[in-house]
Design a protein around this nucleic acid. Structure first.
Lengths: 193, 193
DNA sequence: CCTGTTTCAGAACGATTGGTGAATAACCCG
DNA sequence: CGGGTTATTCACCAATCGTTCTGAAACAGG
């Protein structure tokens, strides 16, 4: 009884995400979004409410994948340094890298939709928790000294994590990032009791 | 014999830098730049050639201060871990923080002026070198093991450095960053031979 | 084959963008 | 106290922004 839509919501979000990722919120003009997603302007507004809504949907999708990936690695049993190292290594992508979309959103916190910024912050907080959980496990298994400040070490790991994303933006090769991660893990192992 | 200009070039750049810093390249509209700097549109074009030129001048000014600060800390004699820790701690700013303007530029590499992006990359490379020089000194003084991969450790320090800037964007308090830095330095000291 | 409902394609909207010109005002030197 | 030069003011430009509207197209049920 009605004309069927010619688009799949998730596919549209994927393509929009790709454009927002590369160009940022303001850089991704509506005309480019329309062309790149294949979705016409009218349907875009009906489906997402506007540019900001489409950005939020894109971030949600990215954050969903991101947290899924982090959880997949950082909830392996038993928790410990192995998981942490695996998580840091999983951050590496190809040569064409536009940074972590979540962090990019934070870097544009004055132009990106406020709702998106909030969700990015929430995701960052969860990732930090995941890292710390594995530190707790590392202590339990004797991989890290009992007297260590896990709050501080967790922040350190997240800082390293986020720094690796920036390294990607700066064009650092995966091999160099690998070496930096290896150095960090070596230090952590040396700190064992 | 001529009408004297009513503005001071450096002051204008400072104010433009402040706006670009908060709003990004595209977010800082020309009207806002004109209002915030006090410089009229026409003179802005005559002096800087346009919005892109003003952005490059802003970045140059920022990078100048930034490198001056890094050099000031990281070229103290003797080179070693003390300088490195001091440099990491010097990254902290107040609560209202918009990230490192150099890194923000990299995060907008597809919308910011290409010349600015290049200069940001060059500055990042120099900072990494400064860190590594102190690692060399640390090895010479026996603070770090001779067999350590200084290339990798240097990358690690820069990664930490850049991650701290992102932590600032994410609203992490100075105290938490302090703790993370302390944890990192403790690890480095434990790695001593 | 209509009819009702929804999507689609594209034009058009007012507002705002970065950039420019033409006229006015300010100054120093002679 | 003008004259010549430069900065400033202010209006304007074409282009583009995000958003909205209009009319045609595509289906399912009667």
């Amino acid at each position: 009884m009605v004309r069927p839509r010619q688009y799949v919501r998730e596919e549209v979000i994927d393509k929009a995400l790709n454009l927002f990722w590369r160009l940022g919120y303001e850089g991704a003009h509506l005309a480019a979004l329309v062309e790149h997603t294949g979705l016409n302007r009218f349907s875009l507004y009906k489906e997402f409410g506007g540019k900001a809504g489409l950005y939020e949907a894109s971030l949600d999708r990215f954050v969903g994948f991101l947290l899924e990936q982090y959880r997949g690695v950082l909830t392996r049993q038993p928790p410990g340094l192995e998981n942490i190292e695996a998580a840091l290594r999983s951050l590496e992508y190809g040569s064409e890298y536009y940074g972590c979309f979540m962090l990019n959103t934070l870097a544009q916190k004055d132009s990106a939709p406020p709702a998106a910024v909030e969700r990015a912050l929430a995701a960052a907080a969860e990732i930090e928790t995941l890292y710390r959980d594995n530190l707790v496990g590392a202590v339990a298994r004797g991989q890290v000294d009992k007297t260590a400040d896990l709050q501080a070490l967790g922040k350190l790991l997240q800082t390293l994590d986020q720094g690796l994303h920036m390294q990607g933006l700066a064009g650092t090769s995966d091999a160099q990032k690998d070496a930096a991660i290896a150095a960090a893990m070596a230090l952590l192992h040396h700190a064992a009791p």
